[in-house]
């Protein structure tokens, strides 16, 4: 069996008297899309923040490519190749695509005693990377604000991939998107997976998860209800596990279909 890119074992996280996570385990293999499902308040956010170095776990351990690791800051996690794309904080709308893409890591060239941004390189790389993801920009100086929500997610994803992410954590990338845009983002996830990058896809939409997921982990009230392989589980079962089952099933009967 291949070594997981990242493995989290029995992660517990307490905030004062609140137990946000009570022993969650999850691993991400190269080239897989691991879906993390859970209703609001299930602990998804706390868990990915632990994975991306924002929170230190109270108990449990994190292994990066088999080695035990402690992340002191998001910077540590980034350097270990763990990149997180947040739903709405990924991009700055007033800035150009190029400026967003390179933000924090601008390529520089020396002109006399000064260092300026190498816009030729920055622009051409941006166009190239975006084209790989199937987005053809009018021009790299176009403001991100002119892009659709799905395209913005894609810029953020291709940025993470270009800068060497091994594990890509996507925080509800599809929750605010329309049907067409969602399928674009799911297609992007598929492309990223082909490169051997492990994807952690957080969502509460079972259908989106079933579309691209290889493995599924459901979080409910800070606990994991186990990890299932693709084909071992149906969408209805996932839905039930997420919602705690019964009430929703009753509701489904009343409504005459699946919720």
């Amino acid at each position: 069996m291949t070594t997981p890119l990242i493995e989290l074992r029995d992660i517990e996280k307490h905030f004062g008297s609140v137990i946000a996570l009570a022993g969650v385990s999850l691993s991400v293999l190269p080239g897989e899309c691991h879906c993390l499902l859970g209703d609001n308040g299930a602990g998804k956010s706390t868990f990915i923040k632990t994975m991306s170095g924002v929170h230190m776990p109270t108990h449990g351990e994190i292994l990066v490519e088999g080695r035990k690791t402690v992340f002191d800051s998001p910077r540590d996690a980034m350097e270990a190749g763990i990149a997180t794309v947040y739903q709405d904080l990924a991009m700055i709308p007033l800035m150009s695509v190029t400026r967003n893409f390179w933000m924090g890591r601008e390529p520089q060239k020396r002109v006399g005693p000064f260092k300026f941004i190498d816009f030729d390189k920055a622009n051409s790389v941006t166009m190239e990377e975006m084209a790989k993801m199937g987005i053809h920009l009018r021009e790299p100086a176009q403001a991100v604000g002119t892009l659709s929500g799905g395209e913005r997610q894609t810029v953020a994803i291709s940025r993470a991939v270009y800068f060497g992410a091994k594990v890509l954590i996507l925080d509800e990338p599809t929750s605010a998107l329309g049907v067409r845009q969602t399928s674009n983002v799911l297609a992007t996830i598929a492309k990223v997976r082909e490169k051997g990058i492990g994807v952690v896809f957080i969502t509460h939409n079972v259908r989106h998860a079933m579309a691209v997921g290889d493995r599924f982990t459901v979080l409910n009230r800070g606990k994991t209800l186990g990890t299932a392989l693709r084909g071992e589980i149906t969408a209805e079962e996932l839905q039930d596990m997420m919602a705690g089952g019964r009430e929703l099933a009753d509701l489904a009967e009343v409504l005459g279909g699946t919720v």
């Binding site: 998001p74 910077r75 980034m78 997180t84 947040y86 904080l89 990924a90 991009m91 700055i92 709308p93 007033l94 800035m95 400026r99 390179w102 933000m103 924090g104 890591r105 601008e106 520089q108 000064f114 260092k115 300026f116 941004i117």
Partner: peptide
């Protein structure tokens, strides 16, 4: 003008004002 439009620091100025939290996430 050169600082703002041509340098890395200029990009950080735009980023800090545009969305400080998003800028922090990428290490500005």
């Amino acid at each position: 003008h050169l600082l703002l439009t041509r340098t890395r620091f200029g990009n950080w100025i735009f980023a800090s004002g545009g969305d400080a939290q998003a800028a922090r996430y990428v290490g500005v």
